[in-house]
Design a protein around this nucleic acid. Structure first.
Length: 312
DNA sequence: GCCGTTACGGTTGAA
DNA sequence: AATTCAACCGTAACG
């Protein structure tokens, strides 16, 4: 297990068996889909099996999250009926969920060169934001609920990058994603960071241009169809997203960026549907801390705009 | 040819 | 500390 670098699928894409695709790729899949690109094209372009594309998109549509579910661990044993205290049980459940998964997992595959230095390992005390939580929706499954800290990974390339191979893992950024990038706009923001991170996985060489992670895969861009990175796909008529949701948007966070590039057709469908549900979330103190951290991290994460230039 | 679904082999991590 | 086991993952293949 140590070095599971990667295998190559039929499409020539790199993947690690048993492990989720890098968020950058996932993000790209969603972005492209939003732009109207057909799944089959996405599959080819990103070199991800269509089954996977299908799965990710389906998941996104359903949960609003591009992030993979929590891997590993055991669900809290529910053997005990919640009978005793109804309210208790409910809160308990949430709490558990929250607690269960909090790590960050930026997929940094060991292939890289990362400098090591970062220990950010995001210790268990990771950063989270309540704000996010709230919007982050109640996840249907036991897992997935909490972690928002993933965000930091998303937003903070450094953090991610830092992982020299063995980074902190964030399996559960699930909620994050939503929170982190509420809409497409956010996508952009994240994207870059996420991409950076992932990129390493994909391409160690990374210097990478900020975006295009996907493209990164294909240096040559054979499929070059979308030569453009996000910008490329972006719909021309996009509007700037407006900070309408202060709550979820971390102020200052990377999102502020020009995100205007992508319009967000998809948006979260459920925001409303589940939105109501977890307001006061029982945040664990950890989470609280996390919140703080996170916020501050967000700030840091402001990354520069991805210049989309050319490429290819 | 496209797309949804699922079997398969694999990884992870709480219990 | 080691093992168990359930949950997830992505690919590949099927329909």
């Amino acid at each position: 297990m140590e070095q599971t670098y990667g295998e190559v699928n039929q499409l020539g894409g790199v993947f690690v068996n048993g492990r989720p695709l890098p968020n950058a790729i996932r993000l790209r899949i969603v972005e492209l889909a939003q732009l109207g690109i057909r799944p089959c094209d996405i599959s080819r372009q990103l070199r991800v099996s269509h089954g996977c594309v299908s799965k990710i998109l389906a998941r996104y549509n359903e949960t609003g999250s591009i992030l993979p579910g929590a891997i590993g661990g055991s669900k809290p044993r529910v053997t005990t009926p919640n009978v005793p205290n109804q309210y208790e049980s409910s809160k308990q459940a949430s709490a558990q969920a929250g607690l269960s998964y909090n790590h960050i997992y930026p997929y940094s595959y060991p292939n890289t060169m990362s400098p090591t230095g970062t220990k950010m390992g995001s210790p268990p005390g990771v950063p989270v934001t309540a704000g996010h939580m709230s919007i982050s929706r109640a996840w249907p499954s036991a897992h997935t609920v909490s972690n928002i800290l993933g965000i930091r990974a998303f937003m903070d390339p450094a953090a991610i990058a830092g992982t020299d191979g063995y980074p902190p893992k964030m399996e559960e950024w699930s909620s994050v994603n939503r929170a982190a990038f509420p809409a497409a706009h956010a996508v952009n923001g994240i994207d870059k960071s996420a991409i950076d991170a992932d990129i390493k996985y994909a391409q160690p060489s990374s210097t990478l241009s900020s975006y295009v992670s996907a493209c990164a895969y294909s240096p040559t861009n054979q499929y070059g169809v979308y030569s453009g990175p996000a910008g490329g796909y972006v719909a021309p008529g996009h509007h700037h997203w407006q900070p309408q949701s202060p709550a979820l948007s971390h102020p200052g966070s990377g999102m502020s960026m020009h995100a205007g590039e992508i319009h967000s057709p998809m948006t979260f469908k459920h925001q409303a549907r589940e939105g109501d549900r977890k307001p006061p979330s029982p945040l664990s103190k950890q989470q609280q801390q996390q919140q703080q951290q996170q916020q501050h991290e967000d700030l840091n994460s402001v990354h520069g705009p991805s210049h989309l230039t050319s490429s290819s």
